[in-house]
Simulated assay, not measured.
Amino acid sequence: MRDFLRLVLGGAAAVTLFSGGVASAEQSSEVGIQHYSCGSSRPPNLDAQGAGGAWPTAEIDLGARSGSATSCSITGLVLDNDRLDYYCHTWGADDQRWTYVSAFDWGVAGWVPYTKLYPRSQASCPK
């Protein structure tokens, strides 16, 4: 069932990503806020968690999104026991903090809510 969900969500993500093009990261007018718009490119991998020690995980199954906002499409499914590589975290346009993750075993990558990860990302995305 997990593989089926990944295939379905992955197929929908491919259609979404290839139909809209790539947008650049947008900076909000508020100081300290960096919003990555839907379909934006992957941020730099600044967080060392996952590479050299215990792999962080999601607390629940999560839809990885194409940008740092709930309005962005889901690119794939991150499950609660997936090993995750964190890239960095940022504030989204929806006033929620987001972390860009890659599910190491499946290749699913995208933005997930910062508060649903353990431990939490330590690196802020560039402004």
Rank of each mutant, 00 (worst) to 15 (best):
C72L: 02
I33W: 05
R65E: 01
I33G: 01
A103T: 10
L5R: 08
S121M: 00
A69E: 03
A58S: 12
S28N: 09
D85M: 10
W98L: 02
V8Q: 09
I60A: 10
D3G: 13
T75C: 05
A25K: 09
S28W: 01
D105T: 12
Q122V: 04
G20F: 12
V22P: 09
D80P: 13
V78L: 05
G21A: 09
H35T: 07
A23M: 08
I60P: 00
G63A: 07
L9T: 12
Y114G: 05
F104Y: 05
W55F: 12
T16R: 14
E26F: 04
M1A: 13
G53T: 07
S28L: 12
F18A: 11
S124V: 13
H35L: 06
S19Y: 04
G21C: 04
E30G: 10
Q34N: 09
L77G: 05
W91F: 10
G107K: 00
M1L: 14
L79M: 14
G110W: 01
I33Q: 05
R97A: 03
D3C: 09
A12C: 11
A93I: 14
C125E: 03
G76W: 00
L17P: 04
E30T: 11
H89W: 06
D82S: 08
I74Q: 08
Y118F: 07
W98S: 02
D82R: 09
A12G: 15
P43E: 00
A13K: 00
V15F: 11
